[in-house]
Design a protein around this nucleic acid. Structure first.
Lengths: 217, 217
DNA sequence: CCTTGTGAAAACTTTCACAGCT
DNA sequence: AGCTGTGAAAGTTTTCACAAGG
């Protein structure tokens, strides 16, 4: 399949998972692997792995599998690992400040460069324990003119989520990692990825309690 | 469709989202709603909402929509909102302690009752700022005999993830909310829900950078 | 042998479109 | 008129199964 083709959404969502796994293998000194091995580690089907890779061209060799170094390099290009992404944090409460300190940074391309909160007196530190400047919400649009961040972590209370989102949109943010349970409204050129921890926990409980009445588990 | 039928996985995953939204409407004093309104708020298709609800019986009235109180009550049963779920936290670092303090508790049925860490000297507080006991990892199996938790939040470093998981399985945990990027191995009667924050961020960046080459966005 | 890449089938999910109830 | 519930169609994703290359 040609490199220029359109990638299915499901495949796109697995790319960072592949990349992380391949980097682990690389760190462990492995040189090559197979769809079988990858599938086993990541709990996918081997055919899914081969199909996913095939959207990007013929990356493997029949009988031999895939060269890890080449794949890591290739996906690094695809995932734009090179580009540094400035991210701003909105809402510096518990989750917000934990996220600032968290290393998203396995991939090294994400930098939380500033935080915004209704209380700018709080302090937020990054994964290297360096302090991140915390500004008032009212300064967000102006400050992001300097910072030029395209991405934001939204970690405000649900009741403030839409209002904060509107500010982010005005500030030119193109991607929002939304930790609130509200499905915020954004223009169609802005992407949101919802990480609703309460829902994840409730789903898990539901799956455990109803193993027998959910399809294909 | 009969109540005893099997629920599609996609539907099951949306249930907590519906429930959260319906409770918000209830808190706002709303009495009834429609698939149209729900879909608008949650960014689903109205037909998806009606189809999802239909797996549980005929919950609405033609021409009128759905009664909110009745639906909330109904889903509370389905989601087992009544049952209190004891949850143990494994790994009391940044993310772990933020999660203990986080209120998963919108639903009121999740209680983080104990934490385990290689360093049991750390302190962890819950959403009400009460201290949660922190035990050594070695005591996990024995302690969970007393506690009887079925669910765990796994927030250890990736390198310790499989080992910690094995302990959780031995302790009788049936559901693991896995915040590590490792796809851990568990027996088939144990469920994992992966919340890989690095991957969510990488996906978001990929979607924004490649809007034109991903299907159906 | 081994393992990839991929047509084709199967499975799952979403959406359309409308009959039927209020 | 308004809105549900659902067959049927469309779209998407996964999996099978095998030809072909190493």
């Amino acid at each position: 399949m040609a490199e220029t083709d359109i990638i299915p959404r499901a495949t796109a969502q697995r790319l960072p998972i592949y990349q992380h796994h391949l980097k682990s293998l690389q760190d462990a000194g492995e040189k090559s692997t197979s769809s079988q091995e990858i599938a086993l580690a990541l709990k996918f089907d081997p055919a899914t792995v081969r199909r996913d890779f095939s959207f990007f061209g013929e990356l493997g060799k029949r009988g031999l599998g895939y060269k890890i170094d080449a794949l890591v390099e290739f996906f690094a290009q695809k995932l734009n690992d090179v580009k540094q992404n400035n991210v701003i944090l909105v809402g510096a409460g518990n989750i917000g400040s934990a996220l600032a300190k968290f290393n998203f940074y396995t991939a090294d391309n994400v930098n939380v460069v500033a935080a915004f909160d209704i209380n700018p007196a709080v302090t937020v530190v990054n994964d290297e324990d360096k302090q991140i400047p915390v500004y008032s919400m009212g300064d967000l649009v102006a400050k992001n003119k300097e910072i030029g961040a395209e991405f934001a972590i939204l970690a405000v209370p649900e009741s403030a989520a839409q209002e904060a989102t509107d500010v982010l949109v005005e500030a030119g943010i193109k991607g929002i990692l939304n930790f609130t349970p509200l499905r915020v409204n954004v223009p169609k050129d802005v992407f949101t990825q919802n990480v609703d921890l309460t829902r994840e926990m409730q789903s898990l409980i539901y799956f455990v309690d109803n193993k027998d009445s959910i399809k294909s588990i």
